[in-house]
Design a protein around this nucleic acid. Structure first.
Lengths: 116, 116
DNA sequence: GCGCGCTTTTACAAGACGTTTACATGTTGT
DNA sequence: ACAACATGTAAACGTCTTGTAAAAGCGCGC
């Protein structure tokens, strides 16, 4: 079953620590491959593709999980926590939580342009 | 009846342990000829020709078996297990399974160029 | 400082997925 | 006709993912 997130072909992300290949669904931190589950990757990808913007929990649950609005769950929170763990020691830097508003992916250091 | 996989003529594969002659449909592990069934060879050949790339079960069932998509079967899994057995003791190294994503052939040691 | 609600983290359970073995059936060779 | 082989499938079991509960920490308004 295809994940809720639909990716553009052949795109990459890279900054000081993190590299993501959206097509191959691969990521690396400081050149070390990250082992991500399907959901973890989808969540990370969505946040990175909206880098710098605060995304609401509702938007995340809708786009990444395919949930309808008005679903009360801590699923997203748990996954954000897992992702922070995977992205240690930069987890707290990359994944910034804004109280009662949402979450934002904060690029680290020198960010290169997304390339196609 | 020709298998679903159509092979290029006269090509070879070779790495530290494995040699494959796609034209003669022959393979050897550490210089010892492998006894492969038609299906086993087709599966191995397809994976080797896509070496390094994760191939989805759907792609494998479509290309190697000629099945349409949406076929629910454990046929592929059983064949991967058989192939791993044939490729012992390197089976687990060559045939890497990525959970919920697919399978990848991982070349072993020094890999020579595929030759035509 | 307190109360309330939000967030983080961990542990657990359930379901999905993957591996392996055994069996059944069809095919092929003698 | 029979034996051997190939291959699909079921079933048992192991592994992994993911949703959720719960405990604890934190933010904010009063």
């Amino acid at each position: 079953m295809q994940s809720a997130l639909e990716m553009q072909n052949g795109s990459h992300y890279r900054d000081a620590h993190l590299r993501i290949d959206f097509e191959r669904r691969a990521a690396a931190l400081d050149s070390k491959p990250l082992i991500l589950t399907v959901k973890e990757f989808d969540l990370l990808a969505f946040l990175v593709l909206n880098a710098g913007m605060i995304v609401s929990p509702t938007a995340l649950l809708t786009h990444v999980w395919g949930y309808s609005t008005e679903v009360r769950t801590r699923t997203l929170d748990v996954h954000l926590s897992r992702l922070r763990k995977v992205l240690r020691p930069y987890g707290d830097v990359y994944l910034e939580r804004v109280f009662r508003v949402g979450c934002r992916f904060q690029p680290c250091g020198r960010e290169l342009q997304m390339t196609a």
